[in-house]
Design a protein around this nucleic acid. Structure first.
Lengths: 204, 204
DNA sequence: CCTTCAGCTTGACATCGTGTCAATTGACAT
DNA sequence: ATGTCAATTGACACGATGTCAAGCTGAAGG
């Protein structure tokens, strides 16, 4: 349970990411991780209390590697509301496929594990703040569609950007990432930007 | 494994629906069901090969009770494309909360059980046909938004109507069923009906 | 009255993955 | 030498699913 940056702890996290990266989604067992890390299954529990805690720690490990913080920066720099909305949608949409292999196991644990559920919910809540900021930028520019309050628009945008929808479109519907991004951006504009359809038509 | 309509088989299915109705979502074990049905856990396996098969059979049992077939009928009777779209969205949206307690366990089994995954996917595929019919009705009336092909619009509508989105809006966002329906209808119009925003504004 | 048979019970057992524990080893530091 | 720390070994508990063999019971049919 040593919370320090022990070498072994790092090896465990690395092993976990590797296995997930290789596509062994939900069927990554503690024993698999241990074997890959070159230690005993039991030894993993010397560093992580349980599977959920390990997966949560792993997501933070991935955050570092993927420089997650820096990804949403461009959207904060945007001048106009429309630009900000676009940039945010684009940044998040590009981020999903990268983190998906690592996020999925955590999502799958949600129903059975409270800690996992909370950890994922927290991340989604953070993402919601980005949605809210984008919607507020529209409101400030007086171009938020009259049909929605800031709160409702934020919830809708937040919902549309859920990983499950990306999953559904790219897997069940067979869409390419490009098609996903393009359509999501257009939808979001049409829905939330005043005269969004006209604007996007003009620019096209 | 008697596939006939034995009395016991019926009692098992009834017991399952009761337990799910009472809110014991994922933690409905085979032993719980057996106890409620007044038989042994092992006896359940005389009627259903495994948990997945039982849950799948249960959904059909619920279909009968809820008269699922009849629910989408009104939308087929609609004259105009817009009416049809509206009616379909409304019918499905009203249906979700009713079946949710029964559908959820099946959805949860998906990741681990192939049969469960297929059963649920099949139901969603059926639902997609309704989406496609509604979009085609718009196309026939020449009021399908120019921004989408029939296929893309169908996929998007299908995605928006997924149970996961209802779940997110009513649970994570705390929306009422009424708010969900209202917003979904408006979004769908805005996105897919030519000048949908103008039309909805006029009617409001 | 006796047999047969289906449907259920009883009790035991296998499997799989998670999580726990006690005793031990090996290395390194004081 | 002694202590400490990380890891190993081997064993075990649990919870849930699924399986199996043997026994019970009641109703139908000779």
């Amino acid at each position: 349970m040593s919370s320090e940056n022990s070498e072994t702890r790092r090896r465990i996290l690395q092993a976990t990411t590797e296995l997930l990266q290789e596509g062994h989604g939900a069927d990554v067992r503690m024993s698999d991780i241990a074997r890959r890390a070159g230690i005993t299954r039991q030894a993993v529990y010397l560093h992580f209390a349980n599977r959920a805690e390990l997966l949560i720690a792993m997501t933070f490990y991935v955050d570092e590697i993927k420089r997650s913080n820096e990804r949403l920066a461009p959207s904060r720099a945007a001048r106009t509301g429309t630009e900000r909305l676009d940039a945010y949608v684009e940044a998040w949409a590009a981020y999903i496929p990268e983190i998906y292999p690592f996020a999925k196991p955590l999502m799958l644990m949600g129903p059975t594990d409270e800690a996992a559920r909370c950890a994922w919910a927290q991340r989604m809540q953070d993402m919601r703040e980005g949605c809210e900021a984008a919607i507020q930028a529209l409101e400030r520019d007086r171009i938020l569609s009259a049909e929605h309050t800031v709160d409702a628009a934020t919830d809708l945008l937040w919902t549309m950007m859920q990983v499950e929808n990306w999953e559904h479109l790219t897997q069940a519907c067979g869409w390419s990432q490009a098609k996903y991004v393009e359509n999501l951006k257009r939808m979001v504009r049409t829905l939330f930007v005043l005269d969004g359809s006209i604007r996007s038509a003009r620019e096209a």
